[in-house]
């Protein structure tokens, strides 16, 4: 699914990476604990999180995650936006809760590929 479609499905606001919205992602990962992201993400995914701090962006950068969605209408600080821009990431916010955001994306056709199987 293209990130531009994700923007539509989540009625998202784009804070960084406006020029990269035709990026394709295989799946999504919804997580507030960064080790969970590192344990389960394999392919190119969009990260949905309720957590808003520089570590989220740093973790995403390490995992080659190019698109992040902050849920529940949180507004990123200008520092965060700058970090995202510097590392070439797409930063989105949505008013939907984690549950609804994930549900809407799933319903729109984004499924579980790219996530390591959980034993």
């Amino acid at each position: 699914m293209k990130v531009s479609e994700i923007v539509e499905v989540l009625s998202a606001r784009v804070y960084a990476g406006e020029d990269q919205l035709d990026l394709d992602v295989q799946s999504a990962c919804g997580a507030d604990l960064m080790s969970d992201v590192m344990a389960f993400v394999k392919e190119s995914v969009v990260l949905l999180t309720g957590l808003m701090n520089p570590q989220v962006l740093r973790t995403a950068d390490l995992m080659d995650i190019k698109a992040i969605v902050f849920v529940r209408g949180k507004v990123p600080s200008s520092d965060l936006v700058q970090i995202a821009k510097d590392s070439g990431m797409i930063l989105l916010t949505t008013k939907y809760s984690m549950f609804l955001a994930c549900g809407r994306l799933y319903e729109a056709g984004l499924h579980g590929g790219g996530i390591r199987e959980i034993a």
Binding site: L33, M34, S35, D36, M38, A39, L51, Q55, V56
Partner: peptide
């Protein structure tokens, strides 16, 4: 944990 660490993973 509130910062996103401490998952024990």
């Amino acid at each position: 944990r509130n910062m996103g660490f401490g998952a024990g993973m």
